Simulated assay, not measured.
Amino acid sequence: MTSPRRPRHPQRQTVPRWITLAIRPLLLGLVALSLLAGIAGGLLRAGVALPAMAHSAWPGHAALAHAALMICGFLGTVIGIERAVAVKLRAAFLAPLASGAGAVFLLLGQFELGAWLIVAAAIVFTAVNVVIVGRQRAAHTWLLLVAAGAWLAGNLLFATNQGVVATLPWWFAFLVMTIAAERLEMTRLMRRRPGAELSLQVVLATLLGGAAWSTLAPTAGGLLYGTALVLLALWLAVFDIARYTVRAHGLSRYMAVCLLGGYAWLAVAGAAWAATALGLPLRDAALHALGLGFIVSMMMGHAPVILPAIARIKLQFGAFFYVPLAMLHLSLLLRLGAGVMGNPLRSTGALLNAAAIALFAATIAGAAVAWRIQHREPDALTTRKTSS
């Protein structure tokens, strides 16, 4: 039981405004650097030539650390910022600072230091989620804590050079379970069917079992992991509120389209993951149907809501948001379809994947400018009327 002497919101006294203002540009720079370097590394791995970088060392480092840059340096830092803003504790910002700094050292070729900084980030991040569970004991907050533990497990395997076969299942489990926790929280807005929460727990326990088993027995673990991803896609398709909000209008419909499209790619990723474990050449399909089709779709869907909260910018939503989303899905179809057939268009698809992400970033920037322009004129008119 909480003591009555304990302040109800002690976090309000712990984060001076000047600190958040000082670290915001730094964190933004680390996020942007991780994303750009991760994309460059991914393009190199897909066979896209980047001649302007031929005489630099960091592109090679980016190619080697592509997954770490995207999952830990970019997404881990973004999620760390979101969680730090939510919990409002000064020490919570150490997690995104450490993961962003770890990405910088990976790019510099200091892989050991970079990896252990990412481990430190996950330790702080896990502690932050312990605080959140202490404040709100709910199924989704417990799930966020388990997801943080999965990130820590993957980071430890990465730092101890256990290889991507052992590391990637834990990293993706972190992202998948974080998204599942957010969607579970949203199901509170609708009437839950009996057994919905229990079935989700069984599916995610299977996912964790597959990740753990992949370290010892990659074939069996991969089959279990892929099966869990397919089952999770089915759970989300059946129980998530997006199947109702897709009938709405504006931002609600856009978010639902992002989510439902992502769930389809999640099922594809699960099937491809299991097939890869059996020896079929579908590794690129497994990783990028999950990383791009599912996770980036979720990012595009949630960004118009999350960015105003953590970056204090307001966005003017419009139909143009659908353009980068459509480009992402179509380019992923090209990439994965061409990859299965051994077609050189796979690299073209990868390049268009990157272009879709860049276009989405430009859309966000344009939406922020559009909101300011639209709301500047009424404000100016109100000011003139007041002064007169």
Rank of each mutant, 00 (worst) to 15 (best):
L89E: 15
A115T: 00
A84R: 08
L157K: 13
V340M: 14
A63E: 02
A277F: 08
G291D: 06
R135K: 04
I295W: 00
S331A: 11
I19Q: 04
I71W: 12
I364Y: 03
E197Q: 12
R45G: 06
V31G: 10
A367Q: 04
G29M: 03
I179A: 14
R135P: 00
Y225T: 03
A65Q: 09
A367S: 14
S214V: 03
F317Q: 07
V119M: 12
L184D: 04
L106F: 01
A285H: 12
R384P: 00
F105M: 01
L207V: 08
L43F: 07
C72E: 07
W265M: 11
T276E: 15
I123G: 03
A286D: 07
L156N: 03
I81T: 10
K88Q: 14
A62C: 09
H61V: 02
M53V: 10
G60E: 01
N343I: 00
P25D: 04
A326I: 09
V133Q: 06
A98S: 11
G210A: 13
V146N: 03
R6E: 10
A54P: 02
G339T: 01
L266N: 01
P281G: 04
V296L: 11
G134H: 09
L33A: 02
R45W: 10
A32N: 06
A138L: 05
L156A: 01
L43Y: 09
N161Y: 14
V128W: 08
L43K: 08
A286L: 06
Q201H: 11
V296A: 07
L231N: 09
A127F: 07
L292S: 07
T227E: 09
P10D: 02
V133G: 11
L330G: 00
T348Q: 00
L97W: 09
I19W: 12
I23E: 05
G342W: 15
L36R: 01
T126D: 06
G60M: 01
F174A: 13
G195W: 05
R183L: 09
F317N: 05
